[in-house]
Design a protein around this nucleic acid. Sequence first.
DNA 1: CCAGTATGTTTCGTATACGATTTCGTACCT
DNA 2: AGGTACGAAATCGTATACGAAACATACTGG
Lengths: 235, 235
Amino acid sequence: MTETATAPAAATIADGTTGSKSEQAYQAIKARIVEGTYTPGYRLVLAAIAKDLGFSVVPVREAIRRLEAENLVKFERNVGATVAGIDPTEYLYTMQTLSIVEGAATALSAPLVGEADIARARAVNAEMRECLKHFDPVRFTRLNQDFHSVLFEHCPNPHILDLVHRGWNRLASLRSSTFRFVPGRAHESVDEHEALLKLIETGADADTIEKAARLHRSATLDAYLSQTNPQDNTP
Amino acid sequence: MTETATAPAAATIADGTTGSKSEQAYQAIKARIVEGTYTPGYRLVLAAIAKDLGFSVVPVREAIRRLEAENLVKFERNVGATVAGIDPTEYLYTMQTLSIVEGAATALSAPLVGEADIARARAVNAEMRECLKHFDPVRFTRLNQDFHSVLFEHCPNPHILDLVHRGWNRLASLRSSTFRFVPGRAHESVDEHEALLKLIETGADADTIEKAARLHRSATLDAYLSQTNPQDNTP
DNA sequence: CCAGTATGTTTCGTATACGATTTCGTACCT
DNA sequence: AGGTACGAAATCGTATACGAAACATACTGG
């Protein structure tokens, strides 16, 4: 569930055959970024990574190029690649984009969400509510992703789904999302989750679901913004 | 206006210094795809392109990797890359995605669209109306892109804007869009353009504009679908 | 003591080379 | 005659190697 496959269909490899080294490198580096081994700003030196993974720099270069296209790393000519940290502005852009594509994905996915899915989502949300007491932002954020994954993962349009995954991946660099900064938002979030589930359960129309999902996300963004209003570094 | 820069900011190069060969290769290949020199299905042989461009295969490989991430080319392991033609299913996915992101971009862009922009858009639309008589789908499609570019290009969120560009680029492979198949749609399209302009002019709220822009696009999609309903090759 | 230049080190960019894999044509067997 | 197996050609994947650019540092002249 926490798995966030972003690779285009052709590159999706499940069995033992791990694919080309280029592909392996891509998976490996992405994993390290998403799981936090490579923190934002970390300098990705080609030779070092190549040696570490055990093959030459060429596959590593290709992998990094792909990660660049996904905006997971920032690449500068003749200088090198660094893990793309998210400054407040980037965070805003990413969240706004995600609110739109995830809203759409959730709406498109809704008719295909079965009772079992609803139950699972509700279970996750219960865990989140439980988690509110001994508040752990990292765990809470992971559950949050699990919850939403259930709702949008059935989206029949793979392009949109891919965009949603990419958005979440970018956010994964900050381990704890907004909730670390705006703990109050966590409570509201859990409640909105339940409301969203009710909408899907009762078969509300697509537009209503889309709006709800979008608002749910942009509310998180707004909470963050009103928290950190003094900052304003436009790029 | 017809320019569709998709490259990430860092790679945007305007002056004579054309940047790395990798970058040059990327630009060159993309240009050939978009302008139709490489038609869908065209087989991109590394060595051939490298020789043609005058440098080795390594930069070409990287370029193709980037194009793959943009879904402009399809890449198959140990087989090679081909220009990603768009089959009906892909067309559907792309148009649906575009309807969503372009709708959002247009809405976000609307408050920043000035009178000059409106005038320009209206001029383009007049040309389109003119073009309806001696109908030329290719020209019409290009004007169509110009028109919409004016409306969404001010979108303050670069991520969303990038997604819109990518969508248009993918569609660029089919030179003439839907209008070749459903000429009747062209008339409606021109009328809807005017309606959209009125909405923006009068400062309609974001939601209204977004819906109008989205519907405008999905109507084109629907026209195409009802035209070619017998086909149904799910991937 | 500071500024500007020279030098050295790190890291990237690209070319070349060779092994691996697929594809296609042809000959052979049934 | 049709299908299968083998082999050659084409093409990709990766390693290695070397030149070029950027960054850090030390040195010299004012």
